[in-house]
Amino acid sequence: MAVWWVTAVVIVVAALALCAVSLKVLREYERGVLFRLGRLRPVVGPGVLWVWPGADRLVRVDLRVVTLTIPPQEVITRDNVPARVNAVVLFKVTDPELSVMAVENHAVATSQIAQTTLRSVVGRVELDTLLAHRADLNDDLAKNIDRQTGPWGVHVKVVEIKDVEIPEAMQRAMAREAEAERERRAKVINAHGELQASDELFQAAEKLSGNPASLQLRYLQTLLELGADQNSTVVFPLPMDIISPFLQKASGFLDSFADRTAQGTNHGGTNHGGTNHGGTNHVGPTMKGTR
């Protein structure tokens, strides 16, 4: 009787151990690639699965999106600028059977392909393109990597370049270039502003010249603005139409004074010429005697 109980207990324990080893549970996002005696069986879905110990081998395949970080890669751009570029790749398995049968480890293979493709694509573009048109490079990388991983049942969804590191000397050169570009834009904008301001001033001058009263009102407004502040020195601008008569009279006076001065000088020269004429009569015999 005791032997029978011991045998029953052993059988039950062995059965429980067999069930524990043979029963497999696949989650909803997992698929199972089953090999029985080395031969491929159909892909099994989520749920409870019975696997014969020693005869079956189950390979679990995750169907979720996998995030793969590409380590920094030393690359040289098309314009011979060294840079360190790293990226992130998002991929998922679309065919569990191919991901097991076509490649040994689809995650490692995808990582290696992503690294080599990153170096190849970045080496074909210039540094400005790498910095300014990163979205186009991301699309190009995703298409190239997906074309190579497609036969493995792996679909690359997104490739994003995370960071681009360039030498400090190149950073300083780019900073100087950006500063010069900003100064150029500032000068151009200032020149356009001066041109527009000159056009507006020209139109304002035309309007003010048509009505002298408006010019006087503008003059009084300017005086009011100057008197509003506590200034120790006040400058009174005088319109040209007010002082122009005085300037004309002053110019006429200076011209008449110059004419009178010129006439006085000519008259004095004539008297001196008469003296010379008298001297000439006296010197004539002397010069003659000398001869």
Rank of each mutant, 00 (worst) to 15 (best):
L217V: 12
Q171D: 00
K157C: 03
V154S: 02
A197E: 09
A169M: 04
A213Q: 12
Y219I: 03
P151E: 06
F202R: 15
G193F: 03
R218G: 10
A197H: 08
I166S: 12
V154C: 04
Q203N: 03
P212S: 05
N190Y: 07
G193V: 06
E181G: 06
V156S: 03
S198K: 13
R182Q: 04
R184I: 06
E168M: 09
Q216P: 01
L208Q: 05
E206V: 09
V164P: 00
E183F: 08
L223G: 05
R218W: 06
M174Q: 11
H192V: 07
I166A: 12
T222D: 14
Q196D: 13
E200C: 01
V158L: 10
L195K: 14
K162N: 15
F202G: 06
R184H: 14
L201G: 04
G210C: 03
V159T: 08
R218K: 15
H155E: 06
R182C: 00
E177H: 06
E168S: 08
A197M: 10
Q221C: 00
Q171A: 09
A204Q: 15
H192M: 13
K187I: 02
A173Q: 14
I161F: 15
V156P: 01
I189F: 03
S209W: 01
V156F: 14
T222Q: 14
K207F: 11
Y219A: 14
V158W: 08
Y219L: 14
H155W: 01
A191E: 15
Q171L: 10
E181P: 03
E179G: 01
E168H: 04
A180R: 10
A173M: 05
V188Y: 11
E194R: 07
Q171T: 12
V159N: 08
K162V: 13
V188P: 01
A178P: 09
G153L: 04
P212W: 02
V154T: 02
G210W: 00
K162I: 12
I161C: 10
K157A: 07
K157Q: 14
K157N: 10
T222L: 14
W152K: 05
A173I: 06
I161H: 04
S198Q: 13
V154G: 01
A178S: 12
R172A: 07
A213Y: 00
A175T: 07
K162D: 13
R172N: 05
L220C: 02
P167R: 12
T149W: 13
L215Q: 05
R176F: 09
A213N: 07
Y219H: 13
A186T: 11
M170T: 06
G153C: 05
H155P: 01
R176K: 08
A175Q: 09
M174C: 00
R182W: 00
D163H: 07
P151K: 08
